[in-house]
């Protein structure tokens, strides 16, 4: 399967693009997190995001150039209903952010998951990010075990980090790189499923392969 995708498919761009949408309550640090990853530094005069902001970064996986597109969304609920919808189109992965010092932002993860589900992204790679772990006292911060339990429930990895600290830079990096690697390894599947809806050619190929292999292994026929 992986061999099939390395073939040149006409009309498919050389450089692969992975679209990642960043969700979470207002003020949890979505903008700072994406800024840290794309610009390598902390955004010290960050403002409220109105609508949707966009950032990108080129990375390399193996020898392949990959473009990561990050869609940074507004946290305020009123922007979601009609506005952000458009940006869920063709999204490959999801980052949900909460603020470790504000339990209410953690409690709204359930509703964010609902939104992710309503857009059919439950099978897309997702990560949960507890941001601002440099803030507050250890007692005031949400316990990792608690967060981990929820992350396990939804089957997504948990990262705790700080967009502010330079020392956490690698951690921020690994959040998005984890997703990129997941997407990269998962890609053959995705290409087949996406192409399957657009062009019948690829789907027949997939089916032929599958039925051929099932024929081989089936002893009763």
């Amino acid at each position: 399967m992986s061999e099939a995708t390395t073939h040149q498919i006409p009309g498919l761009k050389q450089k692969k693009v992975f679209k990642i949408i960043v969700l979470g309550d207002s003020g949890v640090g979505k903008t700072c997190l994406t800024y840290r990853f794309c610009e390598g530094q902390f955004l010290d005069k960050s403002e409220a995001t109105i609508g949707v902001d966009f950032r990108e970064r080129n990375i390399k996986i193996g020898h392949e150039d990959i473009k990561l597109q990050l869609w940074d969304t507004a946290g305020q609920e009123r922007f979601r209903k009609s506005m952000v919808q458009h940006y869920y189109r063709n999204v490959h992965a999801v980052v949900i952010v909460y603020d470790v010092t504000k339990p209410e932002t953690f409690h709204s993860i359930a509703s964010w998951m609902q939104e992710v589900e309503s857009h059919g992204l439950m099978r897309a790679p997702r990560v949960l990010v507890g941001n601002k772990c440099d803030c507050g006292t250890p007692e005031s911060r949400l316990a990792t075990t608690y967060a981990q339990r929820l992350a396990d429930k939804y089957g997504m990895p948990l990262f705790e980090t700080s967009a502010l600290l330079d020392s956490e830079c690698d951690n921020v990096e690994s959040i998005f790189m984890t997703l990129a690697h997941k997407l990269y390894s998962k890609q053959p599947l995705r290409v087949v499923s996406v192409e399957g809806e657009l062009g019948p050619g690829v789907v027949t190929l997939g089916r032929q392969k599958r039925s051929a292999s099932s024929n081989d292994s089936c002893l009763c026929s």
Binding site: S26, G27, K45, S46, E47, A48, Q76
Partner: peptide
């Protein structure tokens, strides 16, 4: 929400 946005209006 207002305070959050105002504090970020530096």
């Amino acid at each position: 929400q207002v305070v959050l946005d105002v504090n970020r209006s530096l």
